[in-house]
Amino acid sequence: MSARVEITLTVNGERVTRSVEARRHLIDFLRLDLGLTGSHAGCEHGVCGACTVRVDGEIVRGCLVLAAALDGAEVTTIEGLTDSGEVADLQDAFVARNAAQCGFCSPGMVMAAADILRHHPGATRAEIREHLSGNYCRCTGYQSIVDAVEGTLKAREGTR
């Protein structure tokens, strides 16, 4: 039994080794220990989606994952996703549609939307809404966000 655990994992392609408190959740690990402040800690009980990041290729709630449990894992944050260029068009669409206002939800929203682009390229508007239903936005009323995702899907469809 240990209150501190040593973990080695890959974050945005970079190998990191840290000793973490067992009680540390992934988002505090990213923000406070690694200085990656793009992922936001919102409700911290799995409701708001602001902390959405990828672990081993799939999106998770960063506030409901123990950093200590991630030895050997591969984590991608909004910083890594942005640097890779994977969703540059989606991010441009967010700007063009004014899909971010205060911006607090945006990193998580983009992570969840990127999941749609990867796994559900043919998603309908209803399916986009359903997929983003776990990500709260208190500013936009969601329409512009759904517009941005839908527009990106259609643009990608056109270029394929």
Binding site: M1, S2, A3, V5, E21, R23, E44, A69
Partner: peptide, 25 residues
């Protein structure tokens, strides 16, 4: 709210789990 102070240990097999349970109840 942040999680309270807590311990963490990984069980890699069922036997591992039984051993940990025996130790910590």
């Amino acid at each position: 709210m942040k999680w309270p102070a807590i311990g963490y240990v990984r069980a890699d097999s069922l036997d591992d789990l039984w051993r940990i349970q025996a130790e910590h109840g």
